[in-house]
């Protein structure tokens, strides 16, 4: 099946457009000209075997990795490759597989990292307000962490993942990229994350979900994008496909 067959009528303006993205690490061609469009509120399942380039592609969107060539547009505005700050300013938030949290800081400090609230004159951090808002944010997202003064290093894997996701969501992003968000979670916590994805996409936030738990994809995704050896191999509609076809596509067939 040619990839063009699954293209839907294009929106006037995609939320994200990545065009002809290429990246090479030494002799390794990680990405060989990938095109990806994401519509507002769309949930995309980005799948592929290990080393297919999923994480690299998404790190580029989040500004953590610079492509060798290619264009990234958010709401029609091209990113200049100025790094994570620029990507964040355009509403891109990514939760990394390796949990971008500081284990020595407490929950509230992690939620507010990079955007701390402080008094203008004394430069003093407003600890009280940050803890109060952190507790509020967590309860809005139905995340059960009783104490925002706990150091993140003392939390369980699931709690840490929840904090990382909460951190991304509280930036009020246009696009939320989740790299293996459910890998370390208990069954109950997985359902919580999936519900979180449905909630944010209903608000118009686009979500790109990278996961090896393929069954999760069928629960929340509007579209599957399959990468194989650095190229966009297939696009599939969840309603028109099943698990075995998806696995076949991931193997490059």
């Amino acid at each position: 099946m040619p990839t063009t067959a699954t293209e839907r009528p294009s929106h006037a303006q995609p939320r994200v457009e990545m065009a002809d993205i290429r990246k090479r690490y030494g002799v390794l061609d990680v990405l060989r000209g990938v095109n990806l469009r994401v519509a507002p509120g769309e949930v995309i399942g980005l799948v592929g075997d290990n080393g297919a380039g999923k994480s690299t592609l998404m790190k580029m969107l989040a500004g953590a990795v610079t492509p060798d060539s290619g264009k990234i547009l958010v709401d029609g505005v091209e990113l200049t490759g100025a790094g994570p700050r620029e990507a964040r300013a355009h509403g891109i938030e990514m939760v990394y597989q390796d949990l971008a949290l500081c284990n020595d800081l407490d929950v509230a400090a992690n939620l507010f990292l990079g955007r701390e609230i402080h008094h203008r004159w004394t430069r003093r951090l407003d600890h009280k307000r940050m803890h109060a808002e952190a507790a509020q944010d967590l309860s809005t997202l139905h995340i059960r962490i009783s104490d925002t003064y706990q150091e993140v290093g003392n939390l369980s894997g699931g709690q840490r993942q929840a904090v990382a996701i909460a951190r991304a969501v509280t930036f009020d992003p246009k696009v939320l990229v989740l790299d293996e968000p459910t890998a370390a979670l208990a069954a109950k916590e997985v359902e919580m994350v999936l519900q979180l994805i449905r909630d944010v996409s209903a608000r118009g936030v686009s979500v790109v979900l990278i996961t090896h738990r393929l069954q999760d994809l069928f629960e929340v995704c509007d579209r599957f994008v399959v990468l194989y050896e650095g190229v966009l191999h297939r696009e599939l509609q969840p309603s028109e496909t099943d698990l075995s076809e998806l696995v076949t596509a991931m193997m490059g067939k």
Binding site: P84, R85, M94, L101, D104, L105, G114, R115
Partner: peptide
Amino acid sequence: SQTKFGRYVTAVGSNAESLRRSGV
């Protein structure tokens, strides 16, 4: 212990990549 700078000092030592990705 009371300013942003101090917090970033701790964060650099704890997980510099995390702080960099936060735009600092």
